[in-house]
């Protein structure tokens, strides 16, 4: 019972951050800011759910294999997400996408103007 409560607290933390990221994706004004918001889902959103799942699988189900598979899923998401978002942001910028509102500073546009 106590274990269940601890797991649920971790799930709730993950879901709160996933909700924040989703709201950011829907409400942010431009492409790059939307991309910033999704990082919330891929970091603490995933970590909360993964930690809860690992605790439940290891202590509640007594299944080390399941716990390790869940941990590996979390690790792979954490390792691959920054590469994906870096390439998406760079591709969007090179493809000519700019925010409607002028950015505070744009050193990339200044140095690589074509």
């Amino acid at each position: 019972m106590a274990l269940r409560i601890v797991c649920d607290i971790f799930f709730a933390i993950g879901l709160v951050f996933a909700f924040a990221g989703t709201k950011g994706i829907l409400k942010m004004p431009d492409t790059f800011s939307r991309m910033q918001a999704q990082t919330c889902i891929a970091t603490l959103g995933v970590l909360g759910v993964v930690i809860g799942g690992v605790l439940y699988a290891a202590i509640g189900m007594h299944s080390a294999g399941t716990a390790i598979k869940i941990a590996v899923i979390g690790l792979l998401i954490l390792v691959t997400n920054p590469i994906g978002s870096h390439v998406l942001a760079r591709g969007a910028y090179r493809g000519g996408i700019r925010p409607e509102k002028k950015m505070e500073t744009d050193d990339l546009g200044r140095d690589f103007d074509d």
Binding site: K23, G24, K27, M28, A37, C40, P99, T105
Partner: peptide, 18 residues
């Protein structure tokens, strides 16, 4: 980030710095 998102995504000031 969660504070910005729940606050309506208004007080942001995006830019690219080197």
């Amino acid at each position: 980030m969660a504070r910005i998102c729940f606050g309506g995504c208004r007080d942001i000031n995006p830019g690219i710095v080197k």
